[in-house]
Design a binder for these strands. Sequence first.
RNA 1: GGCCGGAUGGCAGAGUGGUGAUGCAGAGGACUGCAAAUCCUCGUACAGCGGUUCGAUUCCGCUUCCGGCCUCCA
Length: 470
Amino acid sequence: MALVLYNSLSRRKETFEPLDPKRVRIYVCGPTVYDRAHIGNARAVVVFDVLYRLLRDTFGAEHVRYVRNITDIDDKIIAASRESGEPIASLTERMTCLFHDDMASLGALPPDEEPRATKCVEEMKAMIARLLEKGCAYVADGHVLFAVAAAPHYGELSKKSRAELIDGARVEVAPYKRDPADFVLWKPSTPDLPGWDSPWGRGRPGWHIECSAMSEAYLGDTFDIHGGGVDLIFPHHENELAQSTCAHEGRPFARFWVHNGFLTADGRKMSKSLGNIRTVRELLDEDLNPGLRRGGEAIRLALLSTHYREPLDWTQEKLRQAHTSLFRFYAALARGRRPQASDAASGPSEVRDALDDDLNTPLALARLHELATSVNRLHEEDRYDERERAQTLLLAGGQLMGLLGSDPEEWLRGAQRGDAVLVDQLIADRAAARKTRNFAAADKIRARLLDLEIVLEDHPDGTTTWRRKM
RNA sequence: GGCCGGAUGGCAGAGUGGUGAUGCAGAGGACUGCAAAUCCUCGUACAGCGGUUCGAUUCCGCUUCCGGCCUCCA
């Protein structure tokens, strides 16, 4: 089955065929580094990480180029720096590192390129100059503005008509704009603000030009997929599309626009005023299994348990259920001898098919659960060869989604808070007690270990294993 | 006000014009010295009202409710 993606531009699912299968190109809007990543930021990163993995799996890792920018110059950054007194360069550098840490703990692969806006100002200036040349932009009051009138298809991505845009305007229109919908390409900076010299005076770039310039620099005029959150469709992506298309003399920009749905926390939009912003760090810190860094995997699974285009309401219960699912998967993988990751070829077709259908991760996860059930049943029926095959499929399916990468036994045992040698000794003592049918002593050992949050599991073959209490 | 999206069993969450999602929780059974895990069985879910159809949760229309965007936001 071929990969099908919902294209926001056409508002329908389309079969994805890259322009050049040897060079699949995807651009995703990255973070503005002024604060720690929250769970909504994480959703976008994780969703496109799954797409990236799927593309790599389909076209070959060396044939996919994934670019995700870092916005390190922006009014929010300036404001944050002023508030805390931390210099901008230090703030953005620190937040970039923290972002990398957080995303790594969610199992997200780094993109192939991660350009920073401040390193691409020359490219932005060049593009602005081209837009001015072509008459798609004008200088007014120290600003360079994009003239929406020059973009005949303006509104085609967000499906907004010009009239609607004017009607809906809730913000006072700057007097120097020719058209209320015109937007800033370059704005003046005062001496105390970061700025770059330009033909239009010392200033800094507008937000939208950044992605247009960087996608052009790294992926060319036309590329395959442009991703981001739905909230970016307007105005950010609409403006990018207009700019790039004008700068490229009408040649197509992104062929597929892919947008992930919004995330709410306990039913409400996350906002500073409501105080319900959940950062990735904070969720990792309240790890369900302290000591072993694996909470990120449960967060990842929770984010993938809803289809990416649907709204997702983040709750503690959802995270708990994700953790329970992981337990089920790892317990199935831990039965008998563990399968090797290298066996994992391309992932089981049931999982592939689900992901190929517009990244249906909830269905793919359901398929993993079915595989886990079949592993367990085959194990009970002593059909070990078949069980191992099912385990390999389960592992491969999980890894296609960036899950199940830990050693199953380690995952189940969690942090070795107790001394593993001591646990083994106690298990041996208990086995001896059971042999003489001294069940009181045996149960005492079970209780003692349970106090240490260690659960013993007796198996039909007489062996006993242990794991951390869930 | 304009534009978009959604409403599925106790909860989460796929999907489909006519039998089964899947997981969690719950009930019963098997297994177990106890336990845990696991397996098996169990729920007359598709917001409301009309329409199309032999048949609609699935298609169309209307209503109600919820969310997002229109301003910085993933």
